[in-house]
Amino acid sequence: MKGIINAKNLNLWYGETQALKNINIEIPEKSITALIGPSGCGKSTFLKILNRMNDLIPIVKIKGDIYYNGKDIFEKSIDVNSLRRDIGMVFQKPNPFPMSIYDNIAYGPRIHGIKGKQRLDEIVENSLKDAAIWDEVKDRLKKNALGLSGGQQQRLCIARALAVKPKVILMDEPTSALDPISTSKIEELSLKLKDKYTIIIVTHNMQQAVRISDNTAFFLLGELIEFGKTEEIFSNPLDKRTENYITGRFG
């Protein structure tokens, strides 16, 4: 499978603290890649760097390269807005905007210059359908999104990410605040979405990584220790540190 994101000798510092150490990884497209590791291992930092969210932090220093579809994302000519349109993000805590369900979804497309009610209606409907929440909200599109349940809010956020037609969706522990039923809906949705999108998910739930991801990357103290097929990583990891982490011997 072709790599869509390629990190080469990537290092990142928060001030004096090095959070990522010489990361080399090629993420295959149209598949789910799980990033696992104990808190503070650098997995969320790595996730956020992919659509340049760390740029907002003044003390961050980055060395090394990340290529998205062969293009260096730190190049001056790269438009960060269009990068973030291609590489969307879903956060740990559902964060719908305090506006209607419809406007939540239409927000992105509007910013990117899409006007016309019919076109926006289409995008809203398709995005909500793709995020498997259309049937639950189709009769209340004008209602405030904050009235939805946590699980629905998270799927709404996924729909919002889908509305701008991204290629990659970054998910930072998207189900850690959800109950098992909502979690399983998000997991099933992720499996469906990987036909069209590349998904990179940070998770602390080992079983979730096993259930949905094709490949798993294990981070520890800022290093990428092991990256490979999920089945291999969880049945026969090559590195003792991976084994010790996933079997709960530390972390």
């Binding site: 080992m206 079983q207 049945s235 026969n236 084994e243 996933i246 079997t247």
Partner: peptide
């Protein structure tokens, strides 16, 4: 325990 790796094996 949802065992993995050597535990699962």
């Amino acid at each position: 325990e949802h065992p993995v790796a050597s535990d699962l094996r």
